[in-house]
Write a protein that binds this DNA or RNA. Structure first.
Lengths: 136, 136
DNA sequence: GTACTAATGACAATATCTTCTCAATAACGA
DNA sequence: TCGTTATTGAGAAGATATTGTCATTAGTAC
């Protein structure tokens, strides 16, 4: 039987508060605000369960492992900031994207990511720190 | 001084003949038609050099490592067949994609991939084999 | 409060992709 | 043809992300 642990609650809270796709590490950091000693394995276990329950969806990231956000949002796409590495929801979809495919292709889905600088990083005064290069 | 080896020529040929983004493994298989004993390390070394010379570009693949195709083509996007796993060029771009981003975002680039079945796999008679599950 | 056991944290183990090492080979200028 | 050395193939090693193991902890029914 499934138990309501503080760790699961902290992970739910982190995902809800962010309202954007988070990497497992970002989920970990968010959850640590509630449960400082939570471990990364617990985050991966929770992601697996949440995906199975369809309470979160995986979001593909160009050139990186997927991130995860709450399921049930209307169809939308994402912006990836190449400075702070955060992924942010963009409302809406241009539509008609399937028309790019010539006849004979069966289009079932599409992935669209805009890449650049988010408002925080584009503004010269309030820069967020650059993404940390992977720890050695 | 750079030498013109059979291996490099085979890799160039594989990329040119495919005219679509290839994974390192696909490049290896293509090149082996010319040089049967070529190794994967040689393919990675060639990719690195070709990227530095800007003779090929990396193409991001949702949920997989990047593939590589000849540089210099007009702006275009790609189709990913979820059955045979091939990536295929699509001509053109819907345009105006930057408009999805609210004011404040600085959009520098975009990635668009349509996903589904390519004509070969969608047609019931001439199915290509499914992607091989990664070798054990 | 107790007993049962799901869930956890730490870290080992996988899995996958890419790069490095090095002896052997082959491209090419002389 | 010969000598030099860039390039190669094979396998080891590295890098990173994810999952497995297991003793311990903590939800929950009673």
């Amino acid at each position: 039987m499934q138990r309501n642990t503080q760790q699961r609650a902290a992970i739910d809270r982190a995902l809800a508060e962010a309202d954007r796709p988070l990497s497992p590490r970002e989920i970990l950091e968010g959850a640590r605000r509630s449960v400082p000693d939570i471990g990364i394995a617990t985050v991966y276990r929770a992601i697996k369960d949440l995906l199975a329950e369809q309470r979160v969806v995986a979001v593909d990231v160009p050139g990186a492992p997927p991130r995860y956000e709450a399921a049930g949002k209307p169809h939308h796409h994402h912006f990836l900031c190449r400075q702070c590495d955060r992924m942010i929801d963009l409302p809406g979809c241009p539509g008609q994207l399937s028309r790019l495919a010539p006849p004979g292709f069966s289009v079932e889905n599409h992935e669209l990511t805009l890449i650049g600088r988010c408002p925080d990083c584009a503004a010269p005064k309030t820069r967020r720190p650059r993404k940390q290069p992977a720890r050695k």
